[in-house]
Design a protein around this nucleic acid. Structure first.
Lengths: 112, 112
DNA sequence: TCCTTGTATCTACAATGTAGAAATACGGAG
DNA sequence: CTCCGTATTTCTACATTGTAGATACAAGGA
């Protein structure tokens, strides 16, 4: 039995946000996407440190925008989901699906 | 916007295991339930420390078996999901469902 | 008494999550 | 040219969660 893989809850959320944002995923938009979909406040620091960790594990990659883009402020760092990231996401969702099997998400769980 | 709630990935898994096990949930059975459903090795220490944390947050409760039960070894500590735990579970699953909305779990995520 | 089996507790550490302040970079106002 | 505002990333420090395994406890049987 494999041990010690699977994503943290927030890591999974961040990866999913990347997919929705496609090629417009950078710090601030990622933060907003998560806040919009989760209804939960998220600090910018939380987003970046999670992304950094994910990158160091090879699940996402990042590239800086070149100067050709009309912009204010620093160069944006765009993030992209790597194939390994998609795999992790699938593994996690399968595990969770197995744990939920037979239960109805959203219904009364207290005596199922 | 609320901040700082929601369950860790493993916490969620443990809570779900409790529900499946109903009134037979104690350390060893919980461990096995998770291993069976996740296909992943889990240490007994991981299980207990998570349960302890969950109990201190009021999401689960535990009671020791009385001596009337024919048994070997220590008294079992049975765990039960508290209403607060069910709430947390529902919140977490809703957030995740929102993050997945529009994507197909299990399919190719790389360019969705 | 000592061994085996089933169980829980403890300890120490690694990984993840969180917040906010500081730094960087550009454009525009004066 | 300097200063200010805005958009963005980076840094730092700390809190919470995740993990492993050793140790303690309890009962029954050899």
């Amino acid at each position: 039995m494999p041990k010690g893989d699977f994503l943290g809850a927030f890591e999974e959320i961040v990866l999913l946000a990347l997919i929705h944002l496609r090629d417009n995923a950078y710090g601030m938009t990622i933060r907003r996407e998560i806040e919009d979909r989760s209804g939960r406040a998220v600090s910018i620091g939380a987003v970046y440190s999670t992304l950094d960790r994910l990158e160091s594990k090879g699940l996402v990659s990042s590239t800086y925008s070149d100067g050709s883009e009309a912009r204010r402020g620093r160069a944006k760092r765009y993030f992209e989901l790597e194939p390994e990231g998609a795999k992790s996401l699938n593994r996690s969702s399968e595990i969770l699906a197995n744990m939920w099997r037979g239960l109805e998400p959203g219904s009364d769980l207290s005596k199922s």
